[in-house]
């Protein structure tokens, strides 16, 4: 019991400390101050766009999905319960929109014969790849090849710098799962990058 209670406290403390301006902005918006929403958007849009970019792996769809995210936020903000951080809620919506998008792309690929799957098409000729790409592009390709289940926690952790707890809340799974998925993602990356071991000095 004791340990559980202390765990809870640990969880709750940062929330109280981090009671950022988001909450007051939301309150102002709910009270009828519409421009407050714009401030909220300005504050979070780049992070959201980056998360989308990392999650779907290319630039093209990013702004459309980000628009959808903020439209959803806009519609549901009045029902926002101040239980969790706004950012967590926002990122959860973002991730869900991204997943929807990836699902749509996958379905579309079934009908168009995987023409624009992007990551797979250049696989057979490694020679060409090594000539024209630098290391970060190899790593990007490798990350794209990971299943989204593993990719999302990995990029949230290593690129966006989320904590495991934040990832768990955003992706809506438990902490242990996050831990194992991140490890599996790294393992997967290692395996995908194995042919380039010399260049990467892994």
């Amino acid at each position: 019991m004791n340990s559980q209670e202390s765990d809870k406290k640990e969880l709750q403390i940062p929330q109280i400390l981090n009671l950022d301006d988001d909450f007051s902005l939301i309150k102002r918006y709910i009270d009828g101050d519409e421009p407050a929403f714009k401030v909220l958007v300005l504050r979070h849009k780049e992070r959201v766009r980056n998360i989308i970019y990392l999650t779907i792996g290319n630039v093209t769809g990013v702004d459309d999905i980000a628009q959808e995210v903020f439209i959803t936020v806009f519609k549901n903000l009045k029902q926002f319960r101040f239980e969790s951080q706004f950012s967590t809620w926002l990122y959860r919506i973002t991730i869900n929109k991204c997943k929807d998008h990836l699902r749509k792309v996958a379905v579309r690929n079934i009908f168009t014969g995987f023409k624009d799957s992007g990551s797979d098409e250049s696989e057979p000729n490694y020679e060409m790849k090594t000539e024209n790409k630098d290391i970060s592009e190899f790593v990007q390709d490798a990350i794209k090849k990971l299943p989204s289940k593993l990719r999302i926690p990995l990029v949230l952790k290593d690129i966006e710098g989320f904590s495991y707890q934040e990832i768990a809340e955003t992706v809506q799974c438990d902490l242990g799962t996050v831990k194992s998925r991140i490890f599996r993602a790294r393992q997967g990356l290692k395996n995908i990058l194995a042919p380039l071991e010399k260049e990467l000095r892994l």
């Binding site: 780049e46 766009r49 980056n50 970019y53 990392l54 630039v59 990013v62 290391i135 970060s136 790593v139 990007q140 990350i143 990995l154 990029v155 290593d158 690129i159 790294r186 990356l189 290692k190 990058l193 990467l200 000095r201 892994l202």
Partner: peptide, 14 residues
């Protein structure tokens, strides 16, 4: 560590 570093530096912000 290396893999983490590579991942970290793979993407530039959009």
């Amino acid at each position: 560590k290396k893999i983490k570093a590579y991942t970290k530096s793979a993407y530039k912000p959009i």
